[in-house]
Amino acid sequence: MAGRAGDRAPKARRIRLGNREVVTEGLELSFWADISHRCMTASWPAFIGGAALVFIVFNGFFALLYWFGDQPISNVPRGAYIDYLYFSIETLSTAGYGDMHPQSHYGHFIAAVELFTGIFSMSLMTGLIFARFSRPSARLLFADNPVISTHEGRQTLMIRLANERHNIIANATAQLWVFKSGVSKEGVPYRRFYDLPLIRSQSPALALSWTVFHVIDEASPLHGLDAAGLKAANVGLGLMVSGYDDVAAQTVHARKSYEHDQIRFGHRYVEILRVTEDGLRIDYSRFHETVEG
């Protein structure tokens, strides 16, 4: 059915899901309808820049209202707009140095509205900053490439990860999925995910490094696939790790996704653990290295 005249088609949006770029069409979400999520997910430079822009716009608007009045503020020489802007900044931030103050009903009314706006906006900004700082996060380092090699006599998919903070993540749990494209019996293309069982999916205390193993046997969705088969099925991997951070006293999560061209067949990870006279040593400079074998 044709749309009504004048209707605008929603714009296409580019989003990133892990390492994959997705273009979405036919869905339009108002900027203000999800402003809280946008504030929480924006980068720190974008968040601070946006806050500064809102601060400038608010003060510029209220300074304009003062400027329209008939000398609403005392001690403003020649009614200069820049002085009203300074007074607006003092009022919105509740600083109130005292050399300038409202001297008319109009000035008091605008100042009262601005004070309410300042209190409300500062409370909102404090809450957002606290939420961004207090949001739990895990500093986990994931290997650049999954590897498929023989382990304990069986073909095995392996992914190495490490705790960059070197604190204790208790009851760490890992979950691994594979995403594959296919065609149904009706000829409809689809993309489906499968859970990949791990030899050991839990670690009582993740402090250093951990390698997760998935055996590629007859029951595995990866069984019989080589590099060309992975490409044909547009295979992707998703690894999720969660656990209890003893320092933050909160549950933390981390995830990593891989595309089929990042999987290295016939490779294994370089050993980074060794025992010396000084004790156990870990060489993280070789964390991402692999060798054939």
Results as ranks from 00 to 15, higher is better:
Pro136Cys: 07
Pro146Cys: 08
Asn145Glu: 06
Leu141Asn: 03
Ser134Ile: 10
Ile119Asp: 12
Ser121Phe: 13
Val147Phe: 02
Ile148Lys: 00
Asp144Gln: 09
Ile129His: 04
Asn145Gln: 08
Thr126Gln: 15
Ser134Ala: 15
Ile129Leu: 09
Thr150Pro: 14
Leu124Cys: 13
Leu140Tyr: 04
Arg139Lys: 14
Met125Gly: 12
Met125Arg: 09
Val147Cys: 03
Met125Ile: 09
Phe133Ala: 14
Arg132Met: 06
Arg132Leu: 06
Thr150Cys: 12
Phe142Thr: 02
Ile129Ala: 12
Met122Ile: 00
Thr150Gln: 10
Ser123Ile: 00
Arg135Gly: 08
Thr150Ala: 14
Met125Trp: 12
Gly127Glu: 08
Gly127Leu: 15
Ser123Met: 13
Ile148Glu: 01
Ile129Gln: 05
Leu140Thr: 00
Ser134Met: 14
Ser121Ala: 14
Thr126Ala: 15
Gly118Ser: 04
Asp144Arg: 05
Gly118Asn: 03
Ala138Ser: 06
Met125Phe: 15
Leu140Ile: 03
Leu141Phe: 05
Ile119Cys: 11
Ser137Tyr: 13
Leu124Tyr: 08
Ser137Thr: 10
Thr126Arg: 15
Phe120Ala: 15
Phe130Leu: 15
Ser123Pro: 08
Asn145Gly: 10
Ile129Arg: 01
Phe133Val: 15
Pro146Arg: 02
Leu141Thr: 04
Gly127Val: 08
Arg135Ile: 07
Leu124Asn: 08
Ile148Thr: 04
Val147Asn: 01
Ser149His: 06
Ala138Gln: 02
Phe142Lys: 02
Ser149Phe: 03
Ser149Tyr: 02
Ala143Ile: 01
Phe133Gln: 12
Phe133Tyr: 11
Ser149Lys: 01
Ala138Arg: 02
Ala138Pro: 02
Ser137Trp: 09
Phe130Asn: 15
Leu128Gly: 10
Ser137Asn: 10
Phe120Lys: 10
Leu124Ser: 09
Arg135Tyr: 13
Met125Cys: 14
Leu141Asp: 02
Phe142Leu: 07
Met125Ala: 15
Leu141Lys: 05
Ala138Leu: 05
Asp144Trp: 04
Arg132Trp: 06
Val147Gly: 01
Arg132Pro: 04
Ala138Thr: 02
Pro136Met: 05
Phe130Cys: 13
Ile119Gln: 11
Thr150Glu: 10
Val147Thr: 04
Arg132Thr: 05
Leu141Pro: 01
Gly127Lys: 10
Ile148Asp: 00
Phe142Ser: 03
Pro136Ser: 11
Asn145Lys: 05
Thr126Ile: 14
Phe133Arg: 15
Pro136Lys: 05
Arg135Thr: 09
Phe130Thr: 13
Ile148Val: 07
Ser123Glu: 10
Ile148Asn: 03
Pro146Ala: 09
Arg135Gln: 10
Ala138Cys: 04
Ser137His: 12
Ala138Gly: 05
Arg139Met: 09
Ala131Ile: 00
Phe120Met: 13
Ala143Gly: 07
Leu141Arg: 05
Ile129Pro: 00
Ala138Asn: 02
Ala131Gln: 10
Ser149Leu: 03
Ala138Ile: 01
Ala143Gln: 02
Leu141Ser: 03
Phe133Leu: 14
Phe133Thr: 13
Leu140Trp: 03
Arg135Lys: 12
Gly118Asp: 02
Phe130Lys: 15
Arg135Met: 12
Arg132Gln: 06
Ala143Cys: 06
Pro146Gln: 03
Ser134Gly: 09
Arg132His: 07
Arg135His: 11
Gly127Arg: 10
Ser134Asn: 11
Arg139Pro: 14
Ser121Trp: 11
Leu141Ala: 04
Asn145Thr: 09
Leu140Cys: 00
Ile119Ala: 15
Leu128Ser: 07
Leu124Gln: 07
